[in-house]
Design a protein around this nucleic acid. Structure first.
Length: 324
DNA sequence: AAGTGCATCAACCGCCCTAAA
DNA sequence: TTTTAGGGCGGTTGATGCACT
């Protein structure tokens, strides 16, 4: 049985809203609210419109807290980052942009950002994540609080059907050549933004500090569990070359849902990244998706940068600024 | 000035989810 | 437990305006 339409389309007005209709709807909602029933609202307000049309008009245009006008670079950055992580969940993305609607974000993506991203990907197949200090918006070497400031490439399903996100230089080992340290992050779930984003701040999240951990031991701090290389080699064979390993657990079930691996040996990074990916792909067959969420160079890398070592080939210059 | 193509964005369509009956 | 109605959402369309020829 087909679903009954919400209204008789032959008896309602369609198409663009007139200023008079806008005024009627605005005045009614400001005076009486929506009453929790959009279908009944147009009749009560005296509008010959479908309730869904009224809802859309209010939410996307008439609402007083709507932000009109062009998107800022910061908003673009947030959209690109979130879209790379969660895909076209426009309402979720819009919820991170005060005053923007899902329709706005969707239109902006389809008309501007999609093309922008294609152009970037065409000229630079690997995408580096600039690291921005969450408080000052300046680039930082502090690995404990970051804002993702640009996008990942669109994830493509792999042979296991899992979407994996590109890791810096994961297809080109030479690009690691000037990094002594880097951190590789994975999340086992698709709820990365919700999990990592600080609810009091829409564009920040915390990463685990890179704790000093005694050999063969594990340290728990700030919700993260960090293990030494000796300890983690027993947890995960692919991590046996890592310096440390930090993970966080799902609040509900206490299961590990994400981790960061601090890599140390420049020559082994590429193999480690590959083996880590491979291992997780295999485990995904049972566990579900595993998303490598990002990687970033650690403080020692920036120390090198301060000695005017050039960024790795193929990376955006802006991703690795020379520090004072 | 007229015609054409493209970009933009408001609005609609139809499906899914959920709560109430 | 099933059915139904309403809200929410992502995909798509079409009107409009602008740039270019």
């Amino acid at each position: 049985m087909g679903r009954a339409p919400c209204c008789d389309k032959t008896k309602v007005k369609r198409g663009p809203w007139s200023p008079e209709e806008d005024a009627i709807l605005r005045n009614y909602i400001e005076k009486y609210g929506t009453g929790g029933n959009w279908i009944a609202l147009p009749r009560k307000a005296g509008l010959k419109r479908c309730g869904k049309s009224c809802r859309l008009r209010w939410l996307n245009y008439l609402r007083p807290d709507i932000k009109h006008g062009g998107f800022t670079d910061e908003e673009d950055s947030i959209i690109l980052t979130l879209h790379s992580n969660i895909g076209s969940r426009w309402s979720v993305i819009a919820s991170h942009l005060p005053g923007r609607t899902d329709n706005d974000v969707k239109n902006h993506w389809n008309t501007k950002l999609k093309k922008k991203l294609s152009a970037v990907n065409a000229t630079n197949p690997t995408t580096v994540i600039p690291i921005v200090d969450s408080n000052s918006n300046n680039f930082t070497s502090n690995p404990s609080a970051f804002t993702l400031a640009t996008s990942f490439n669109k994830p493509q399903p792999d042979c296991y059907g899992n979407s994996t996100y590109p890791i810096v230089g994961s297809d080109a080992p030479v690009q690691y050549s000037s990094m002594d340290h880097m951190v590789l992050g994975y999340s086992m779930t698709e709820v990365v933004p919700d999990l990592l984003y600080d609810s009091s701040s829409t564009d920040q999240f915390s990463l685990p500090e890179l704790f000093e951990v005694q050999e063969n031991s594990t340290l728990q701090k700030n919700g993260f569990t960090t293990s030494s290389s000796q300890e983690i080699s027993s947890l995960s064979p692919s991590c046996s070359l890592a310096k440390s390993y930090s993970s966080w657990n799902d609040n509900l079930f206490g299961e590990e849902v994400g981790f960061f691996v601090e890599l140390e040996s420049r020559s082994s990074n590429y193999n480690l990244v590959q083996s880590a990916q491979q291992e997780e792909k295999v485990s995904n067959e049972v566990e579900g998706s595993c998303l490598p969420i990002y990687s970033y160079p650690t403080a020692s890398f920036f120390d090198q940068m301060s000695d005017n070592i050039l960024p790795p080939q193929g990376h955006h210059q802006t991703a690795f600024p020379i520090l004072d």
